[in-house]
Design a protein around this nucleic acid. Structure first.
Length: 808
RNA sequence: GCCGAAGUGGCGGAAUGGCAGACGCGCCGCACUCAAAAUGCGGUGGGCAUCGCCCGUGUGGGUUCGAGUCCCACCUUCGGUACCA
């Protein structure tokens, strides 16, 4: 060891050794105890590795190193998610081809990731933009298509006017494009979808059995948004053979349905509109269609117009007017509602504004008849049905079931479940993605590209800027568009849309173990051996995007016979976010931490350990430029302690010291297991403070420090390990064991309270019985003072911890 | 509005219902030094103060011998989501 701890040279030295020995690039087939440690692969941006990436990867790497030292064969792959609108937009801005740009970015990321000192299996790295990768992305598309899970349909979709492409629902954040923050509009376009809604119930139910961060599970449940109710049919008054279907979660309120409302897009609007209302209705509908999605869905004034048409309430038999209003969404339920203004806030607001009748059909539970106060707002609770003919008097939960049963008897409706989740819109009118492998033949219709013809290569073009015509830039390249029909061999036209970036990342973890396989997407035996993933760590921002799509795809591939499991990740943990001096880091604030700067100044070990020290990993932490000094000093002090004592240190230590060591091992082990890295590091600091005060720290204590530090600061741990004369890599060494019996302290402090207030502390051997403690406590002057002249009622004794003397 | 998480020193944060503030930053003092940096050692919630005592974990109640921790109501902040019938 050198005189002085020089992070740069220590880190360089060990990174070279790891690379030479290939200790993280073992043979997957020879492994005996597989452990798949996955982290969300990065999008290689031009700015380079963000400190948020460093935070995420360090936490996951600590987990991996810990599992490896516990004897598992830990596979910890890394890759690059380099397709997608973000790269493409950036390339357009720079006027550089995304391919050129991504290659540069990836090279930079690889370098930075090396500096970080992760135990990455680089020999299994994947890049989604590599034809050898996206060939299989296309293959997956074909399997879904053949399995009936991919379809093309005309539907109202989200359109980003800036990115000039459609977006999936999950990619619209508060009415804005997830990528560029532009307000999204609605368009009716023919698009490719994956039938994720078919899996809604399974995606929901499986959540109960997954060991995932609760936050994510809750977000997914909300997003799937299952709601149970009924579909009821209201016949048209003038054409009883036709009817309007509405979805409601409150069929029990059907007698209170005093009007119907259709979404502006609803096809029956035109049919129902009476000639005298036509002008007004047309104007309303076209104005609504022109408005931005965010404006249309913003709650507020309830605009709408009467169509002039009527339908018949199938229960009361009364005619009800039919209105059109934008507060009814075309994309949810049936795009039509029965309005019950007495018991729904929105309908109440609408009825009040437009002077429509309000009929009360639910009274508070326990209602026995008599006067009810006039409603000043909708009563949305369950209660007792009133004004509902034979259903009156029933608790509304029961009335709900009874009404559904009656509707089924009368053939005017049935039980129905609705979901917030929509099918996954998969096509994009962009360049930078895998072309969707489909062909249109005039004779044979839609044809999938033959699997042996994959990949459908993304052509190198000069003009990849989207035109906004609703077509991909690929449509302008004849050599790409012109194809041969796989069925009849005649001239045909290629699909020119590319697939969503989230499809690339929905299966990358399946590719890692089989990377390089030229004949299939994933090797069955490799997959069987290594999957599902044991631990997946990543950010919360993908709760309903990546993490939901991935689960769906895995389920679909399972059902299609390609996978034996249907859930890809046994455990998932969401890490927190790192802020700087209390504020969120952002380019506009100019407070982004550049990891390179800190690698240079302090080294990767310090940065890693400091980031983990800032707070509980799952909650995030705050980066302060001063705070990092403390961790840096800690590593320095430890280095010097080991250097000075490496040769002198001998085996045995005092019993107290041994006990302390066992407690330390237990604490660090448990903390790492629970991702409480901050307290694990605090424990190591405490131990160092203690060892520094010892006259002669034992060899065993120094060894233990090196081992326990290894996951956090992998380079210096190697240096200390070597300095202590140990053979081999510290990362190949066994994680130290602790003896629970030795974790017990020999002397404990017992707190003596009088009526719950601290009065004295007693040092006694651990396991001292109550009688002895009581005697000692009563002998204490500090205690006696407070119990003189009062009667002692009882004693509360907690062994080795506390004695509380309760007085009357 | 709804869902979720969180409110503890000057700051980041620690505490199986049992010593509140571990560990670190910052600050103060001391040592080393001609001096400084670095390093080391000691101190550091507030108040009254004579031993000592009182107060203190967003606010108000409650349960308990004992509450930062459990229960009820509320306030604030952050994150997600929103006319989903």
């Amino acid at each position: 060891m050198d005189q002085k701890y020089d992070a740069a040279s220590v880190e360089r030295k060990w990174q070279e050794r790891w690379q030479e020995s290939g200790i993280y690039e073992f043979d997957l087939d020879k492994a005996t105890d597989p452990y798949y440690n996955l982290m969300m692969f990065p999008y290689p941006s031009a700015e380079g590795l963000h400190v948020g990436n460093v935070y995420a990867f360090t936490g996951a790497d600590i987990h991996g190193r810990f599992q490896a030292m516990r004897g598992h064969d830990v596979f910890e792959p890394m890759g690059f998610d380099a397709f997608g609108i973000h790269s493409e937009n950036f390339a357009i801005k720079r006027g550089v081809h995304p391919k050129t740009l991504i290659a540069q970015n990836v090279a930079h990321f690889r370098e930075q990731l090396h500096r970080l000192g992760g135990r990455f299996a680089w020999n299994h790295a994947v890049e989604t933009t590599d034809p050898d990768y996206y060939r299989w992305t296309q293959w997956i598309f074909l399997q879904l298509y053949k399995g009936g899970l991919a379809y093309k349909r005309k539907a109202p979709v989200n359109w980003c006017p800036s990115c000039k492409t459609v977006l999936a629902n999950e990619q619209v954040i508060s009415g804005r494009c997830e990528r560029c923050d532009t307000e999204v509009t609605q368009r009716e376009l023919e698009q490719w979808f994956f039938d994720i809604t078919r899996y809604a119930d399974r995606l929901l139910e499986n959540l109960d059995h997954l060991d995932w961060s609760e936050v994510i599970k809750t977000a997914q449940r909300n997003w799937i948004g299952r709601s149970e109710g009924a579909e009821l049919h209201f016949a048209l008054k003038d054409r009883p053979s036709q009817s309007i279907a509405v979805f409601t979660t409150r069929p029990d309120t059907v007698y209170g349905a005093t009007f119907l409302v259709l979404a502006p897009e609803h096809p029956l609007v035109a049919e129902l509109t009476s000639p005298d209302r036509k002008g007004e209705v047309d104007a309303y509908v076209s104005a609504a269609l022109d408005r931005k999605a965010e404006e249309r869905t913003a709650a507020g004034e309830k605009s709408g117009v009467f169509t002039g048409g009527h339908a018949v309430n199938p229960f009361s038999g009364k005619p009800v007017p039919v209105w059109v209003a934008e507060y009814v969404l075309w994309g949810y339920g049936t795009g039509a509602i029965m309005a019950v203004p007495g018991h729904d806030e929105r309908d109440f607001a609408f009825a009040t504004r437009h002077g429509l009748p309000i009929v009360r059909v639910v009274a508070p539970s326990g209602y026995q008849g008599g006067e009810l106060l006039e409603l000043t707002e909708a009563y949305t609770e369950y209660g007792t049905a009133i004004n509902s003919q034979e259903f009156s008097g029933l608790p509304t939960e029961q009335a709900k079931l009874a009404v559904i049963a009656r509707a089924e008897d009368l053939r005017v409706g049935s039980r129905r479940t609705s979901y917030h989740l929509r099918d996954w819109l998969i096509s994009r009118q962009r360049y930078w993605g895998p072309p969707i492998p489909m062909i249109y033949c005039k004779e044979c219709g839609l044809q999938p590209v033959r699997e042996e013809d994959l990949p459908v290569l993304l052509p190198d073009v000069v003009d990849f800027v989207p035109k906004g015509t609703g077509e991909s830039p690929l449509a302008a390249i004849p050599s790409f568009v012109e194809a041969t029909c796989p069925q009849c061999g005649g001239p045909a036209r290629r699909e020119t849309d590319v697939s969503d970036n989230f499809l690339d990342s929905a299966w990358y973890f399946l590719r890692y173990p089989s990377s390089g396989d030229a004949v299939r997407a994933f090797d069955p035996s490799r997959t069987q051996k290594w999957l599902p993933v044991d631990m997946y760590i990543g950010g919360k921002e993908h709760a309903v995007l990546h993490l939901l799509y991935t689960r769906f795809l895995c389920m679909a591939l399972h059902d299609l016979g390609f996978l034996s499991f249907e859930e890809p990740f046994q455990r998932f943990r969401a890490h927190g976010m790192i802020t700087r001096n209390g504020a969120k880091m952002s380019k506009s604030r100019g407070n982004v931490v550049n990891p390179d700067e800190f690698f240079d100044r302090y080294g990767a070990d310090t940065l890693r350990a400091y980031l983990m020290f800032t707070g509980p990993y799952e909650e995030g932490g705050d980066f302060s430029d001063h705070g990092i000094e403390g961790v840096h000093r800690f590593l320095h002090r430890l280095y010097h302690l080991v250097r000075e004592n490496a040769s002198a240190a001998q085996g045995a230590a005092r019993e107290e010291v041994v006990r302390r060591r066992h407690r330390l091992i237990r604490r660090v082990t448990e903390d790492i297991d629970g991702l409480k890295y901050n307290t694990a590091i605090a424990a190591l600091m405490e131990q160092l403070n203690f060892l520094q005060r010892e006259e002669q720290p034992s060899r065993e204590d120094l060894r233990t420090m090196a081992l326990l530090l290894a996951p956090f600061a992998p380079h210096i741990a190697e240096e200390l390990w070597e300095g202590l004369g140990e053979q081999g890599s510290v990362h190949a060494a066994h994680w130290p064991a602790y003896d629970p019996a030795l974790c017990q302290e020999d002397t404990v402090t017992i707190v003596v309270q009088v009526n719950g207030k601290l009065r004295d502390r007693l040092q006694v051997p651990s396991g001292t019985p109550e009688a002895v403690v009581r005697e000692a406590a009563l002998a204490s002057e500090a205690v006696a003072k407070h119990i003189e002249s009062v009667q002692t009622a009882r004693y509360v004794f907690v062994p080795d911890r506390l004695l509380n003397i309760v007085t009357r």
